[in-house]
Amino acid sequence: PEAADLRALSRHLYEAYLKYFPLTKAKARAILSGKTADNAPFVIHDMKSLLEGEQFINCKQIPTPEHQQQMSALTVAHGGLSGAHQGLECNILDAVELRFFHSCQSRSAEAVREVTEFAKSIPGFIELDLNDQVTLLKYGVIEVLIIMMAPLMNKDGTLIAYGQIFMTREFLKSLRKPFCQMLEPKFEFSVKFNTLELDDSDMALFLAVVILSGDRPGLLNVKPIEQLQETVLHALELQLKLNHPDSLQLFAKLLQKMTDLRQIVTDHVHLIQLLKKSEMEMCLHPLLQEIIKDLY
């Protein structure tokens, strides 16, 4: 009966994952390997194709009506930045990194909303102290977003804009500092992480484990969080045994990734703080500001 409960939990989290995250690993890998019936993604590999890509994405619609509606509302809610963004579009090529960075921020803010909805679907999460729910999200969400970048990446580049665009790693490395430094550590993490060959159902459990970390600073009531995490950890261990019977120590290898993630997030936050100082025109999305402020 215990194993049956754990399997039910795994199914529940997988269903929530499919509900809230529009671009699954299965879909991303199909796009990256050219196996989709749709058109291949638009490739951004230099400044010219970046400018073309911006037009390309402006003409395209967001995948589902539900997401389109939510994205529009989030953009309206964030009118200050949208205005700044449009103003920047008139600028010369020098501003292209900033403009791209603003687009990344808008997508990141939307992704935080998706992760929040996923967190709320974890059984027991919404019963936790509300302050602790905030803390778990504040500290967990960037780690989750970095994990979720892995399926979109290969050694040569990354899918962006819901899989409609592929941006090359070389192009990202060619941007001026510190923009060129922002994604390289994520590529390094992703290439190693992808060798574990997790599928979407494994990912759903791993993301829940990361969110339910009982050692986040400032938590008021650690015990119920640890209890929830222990149950999800059992579900993950069972899932990996069943789904990857030949992959030795996969559970241990996956847990080790949680340590690597903390350093990547710390470095990421430092880069953003550096950007805030060096790029006077740059304004941070208020939701991302909340998360990053006093983080590490």
């Binding site: 989030l74 809610a77 909303r113 909805e117 729910q133 905030v134 999200l137 909340e290 402020k293």
Partner: peptide, 21 residues
């Protein structure tokens, strides 16, 4: 904490509706 994280708090409290800043 709630005061410092108004949007996160809103996201947690509202169902699937987007944030109204």
């Amino acid at each position: 904490l709630k005061e410092k994280h108004k949007i996160l708090h809103q996201l947690l409290q509202n169902s699937t509706s987007p944030v109204d800043l």
